[in-house]
Write a protein that binds this DNA or RNA. Structure first.
Ligand SMILES: [Mn+2]
Ligand SMILES: [Mn+2]
Ligand SMILES: [Mn+2]
Ligand SMILES: [Mn+2]
Lengths: 140, 140
DNA sequence: ATAAAATTGTAGCCAAGGCTACATTCCGCA
DNA sequence: TGCGGAATGTAGCCTTGGCTACAATTTTAT
C-alpha cells in the first residue's frame, strides 16, 4: 500500500469507542429504570434484566463507581450520581429516538426494540439530530 | 423483583452477540476489499486500514483461520475461504444498505459512513429487509 | 429467635482484543 | 550478491467482560 489513509480508519475507531461505552450506557440506563420502578437498583435485578451472572453485574457496577457514575454500600442498592442520572437521561432519549426511527422506516415493532439495543450506541449526535428532524418532518 | 422476564434480556443478548461478531465481519470485509485492490491482503495493510498495531491484526487473522474463514502461509498474504468470501459479500451488502438508509433519512454523507461502520453489525436480517423496502419505495 | 433461603461479595478462571519490544524473514537496490 | 529496511512473527503484558464456586451477609419464615 502506498499512502496512509487518515479518514479510512475513523469509522473503525469510532465503532471501537462506541462498543466500549455500550456496556456503561446500558447499565446506567437500567439502574435508572429500576430506581424508577422500585426506588433502588439491586445487583440481582440488574443481572437478571441484563441477562448476566451476578458477579458480572457486580464488576460492572464497580467500574461505574470508579468512574463516578454510581454509588453503593455493601449489601445495599446501587444509586446513580448526578452525572450518572444525566447520562441515563440522554441514553434513554437516544434509545427512544432510534426505536421510533426504525419503526418509521418500516421495521416491525419487536424487531425495532431488539435491534435498537445495539444500534443506539453507534448513533452519533449528528445522526441523532437527523433522526429527530426526520421524525418531526414525517409527523407534521 | 418478582418475575423473571424472558423477553427483556433478548435485546442485550443480541447486542452482545453482534458486538462479538463485529470484528470478524470488519476483517473479512477488509480482506475482501484489499484482495480486490491488490490481489491479496497483507497484514500491514489490514492493520493500517483498521487502525491497529500489526500484532493485533495477526491475532485477528489467526482467529479467522481457526474459524475457517481465511487461509495464509507465513510471511505471505491472507486469503478468504469460500465461506469467508460469502460472509464478505453479505457484510459489504449490509454496509451499503445501512449507509444508503442513513443518507435517505437525512444524515450527512461523511457522518453516515462513519456511523454505519458500527451500526451495520447490529442490523438484523429483518431490519435489513425493511431498509431495502424503504429505499426501493423512496427511489421509485 | 433461629434456621433456611436469598442476596451479595470475593476469588480465580477464561477468551478477546488492544499494546510494546524484540526476533526473524523477505525483498529491492546499490 | 549481499545488505538494509520493511514486513511479519512471537512473546508477554494489560483491561474488559464473561463465567463458576464458594464465603459472608441479610432477609424471610417458622
Ligand atoms: Mn443498548
Ligand atoms: Mn437501551
Ligand atoms: Mn463495521
Ligand atoms: Mn463495514
Amino acid at each position: 500500500m502506498t499512502e496512509t489513509d487518515p479518514t479510512q480508519t475513523k469509522g473503525f475507531d469510532r465503532a471501537r469507542q462506541a462498543a466500549s461505552r455500550a456496556l456503561t450506557e446500558d447499565y446506567v440506563e437500567m439502574i435508572s429504570d429500576l430506581a424508577a420502578e422500585f426506588g433502588e437498583a439491586r445487583i440481582t435485578d440488574l443481572a437478571a434484566r441484563l441477562g448476566v451472572a451476578h458477579p458480572t453485574a457486580t464488576k460492572a457496577v464497580a467500574r461505574l463507581k470508579r468512574e463516578g457514575l454510581a454509588v453503593s454500600r455493601p449489601y445495599r442498592g446501587v444509586f446513580l450520581t448526578e452525572e450518572g442520572e444525566a447520562m441515563a437521561e440522554s441514553v434513554r432519549a437516544r434509545h427512544r429516538v432510534v426505536v421510533a426511527l426504525l419503526r418509521a422506516v418500516g421495521v416491525p415493532d419487536e424487531v425495532a426494540e431488539l435491534d435498537a439495543e445495539g444500534i443506539e450506541h453507534h448513533v452519533s449526535s449528528r445522526t441523532l439530530a437527523a433522526f429527530e428532524a426526520y421524525l418531526t418532518r414525517k409527523t407534521d
